[in-house]
């Protein structure tokens, strides 16, 4: 399918009507139709098709808990909080933009100044019962600190799981093993971001 066809909103032009004959009314015509349908072998075509598929054994089942389909990097599931790669500090600077922009009003954060006079987040929770996974928080975050992860399996004993700061934050040992991969998805900088940066004209 070409892009133009795909973008065409006026689909009615492309509709094709399948010719359907009116059902016969005269008894003789009805009888002929029955005969035709009986001996045409349409039923056996159906039998053959399913038998062929059985013999071909071309199975499409994904046995879900054992094997999972890869999900898109832009998939928006439960949130994650990232750390800085080198120092291991939290990326979040406590600016509160995510809290402000959240349209479902589900993010709550508590901040204070630490000993270095740096803003530090003490509490960070997301009410997943209200979250609509719109992705605005990840998009607005200037530090790429809050992102959407790929974890879509949300079964747990407590409804408060996954949503506290300690659940979302990358664990330190995890970071040290280099397992925190840079987020490629929604709101992330594009791979060629460096090339696209324009130098600030210093003329003024």
């Amino acid at each position: 399918m070409s892009l133009e066809q795909f973008k065409d909103r006026n689909v009615s032009q492309n509709y094709r009507f399948i010719p359907v004959d009116k059902p016969p009314t005269a008894p003789m015509d009805k009888f002929k139709q029955v005969l035709k349908r009986t001996f045409k072998g349409e039923l056996f075509v159906g039998l053959w098709v399913v038998f062929r598929e059985m013999v071909k054994f071309n199975i499409h089942t994904v046995q879900y808990p054992k094997e999972k389909l890869p999900i898109s990097p832009r998939y928006r599931a439960v949130h994650k909080l990232y750390r800085l790669l080198e120092s291991g500090y939290e990326r979040c600077i406590g600016c509160g933009l995510c809290e402000k922009i959240c349209i479902a009003n589900c993010i709550r954060m508590d901040t204070r100044y630490d000993e270095n006079q740096r803003k530090e987040v003490t509490e960070y929770t997301i009410n997943l019962g209200r979250c609509i996974f719109c992705g605005y928080c990840a998009e607005v975050c200037p530090e790429l600190a809050i992102v959407h992860g790929g974890r879509y399996e949300n079964a747990s004993e407590q409804r408060a799981h996954f949503v506290l700061k300690e659940d979302m934050l990358t664990p330190l040992d995890f970071l040290k093993e280099g397992k925190q991969e840079e987020f490629p998805g929604f709101g992330a900088v594009s791979p060629n971001a460096d090339e696209r940066i324009k130098k600030t004209p210093l003329a003024y």
């Binding site: 598929e53 499409h60 089942t61």
Partner: peptide, 13 residues
């Protein structure tokens, strides 16, 4: 099983 194979599924596994 037979229905599953005919519909390209695996059935009970």
């Amino acid at each position: 099983k037979v229905l599953a194979f005919m519909q390209r599924r695996l059935g009970p596994m």
